[in-house]
Design a protein around this nucleic acid. Structure first.
Lengths: 146, 146
DNA sequence: TTAGTTGCAAAGGCTTTGCACGCGC
DNA sequence: GCGCGTGCAAAGCCTTTGCAACTAA
């Protein structure tokens, strides 16, 4: 036996899917792994990736899996205006996104402040707010040079 | 002559359109007025409104007008994930949005802080940032009660 | 006049839905 | 074995594009 001296949190793909209450299937495993390789990928890019492992799959099945991931909370869908939906696994931490207005590239930005004041407005029109989402728009290095 | 004692800024619909460098047409005037009545409206709702004034118009013409407004900067398009694009006239001031996760209702939120620290991250992956967009997700009063 | 706009039609991209078969548990 | 998930097909929604006729400047 491997004698785990410290409590080893099982972080494999299978475990993550199972923890979400979903059955482990080839498609879901492949989609999850694809999300790990491609941090901010649109569905069709993920599909291309998944096809390499599970050739019989379809775009719709990838959408199914992504939908299940988003519903159960192990993935998140972001939708920068003017671009198709992108999917990512980072879901628990409070981070934001920069989107290149020219090429659509997306990068993560860690929030520099713990309790951002602008994320806790006092006038909320009575809304009970549970999430804040920040998107920065700008030019990435490649597009700024061009 | 009306003898304007103070310099009167002409703020009529026509003037706004003309100032954007666009020709004034019935369709554009109607779309602009519809935007004033419906602060965060999707294209089809605006179309319904416009049809009352200009029955011969079409959804595509409304899209044309909206596209022109957005391009010239007198309107802005926001796209809360999961909902069709919404259009609004408030464009010069720094304000954000609350979106109801249940019914999709959108309200404006004025930014309480002038220079929000979270909107000026130091690590930007080399992006030259020019805009920051904040979306709050929550439940509006009606949906929270239900 | 003449270039910018319209209205119509059609296509396009992204995503969801419905259903019979197959597989995870 | 039971039920969830897949794969296939088709439809759906929102939006953009192309083009001849029209009209604001």
């Amino acid at each position: 036996m491997p004698a785990p001296s410290a409590p080893v949190e099982e972080t494999s793909t299978d475990a993550a899917i199972r923890r979400a209450g979903l059955r482990v299937t080839d498609t879901r495993r492949a989609v999850y792994d694809a999300l790990r390789s491609l941090p901010h990928a649109p569905a069709d890019a993920l599909f291309e990736r998944v096809k390499a492992t599970v050739p019989a799959t379809s775009v719709q099945s990838v959408y199914n899996a992504l939908g299940d991931f988003v519903t159960t909370g192990i993935a998140r869908r972001i939708e920068p205006a003017g671009h198709p939906g992108l999917f990512e696994l980072r879901v628990d931490d409070n981070h934001h996104h920069v989107v290149c207005t020219a090429c659509g590239r997306v990068e993560d930005i860690d929030c520099v402040v713990g309790q951002a004041p602008c994320l806790h407005p006092d006038e909320t029109h009575g809304f009970r707010i549970h999430t804040a989402e920040v998107t920065f728009w700008g030019l990435c290095t490649s597009c700024a040079d061009a």
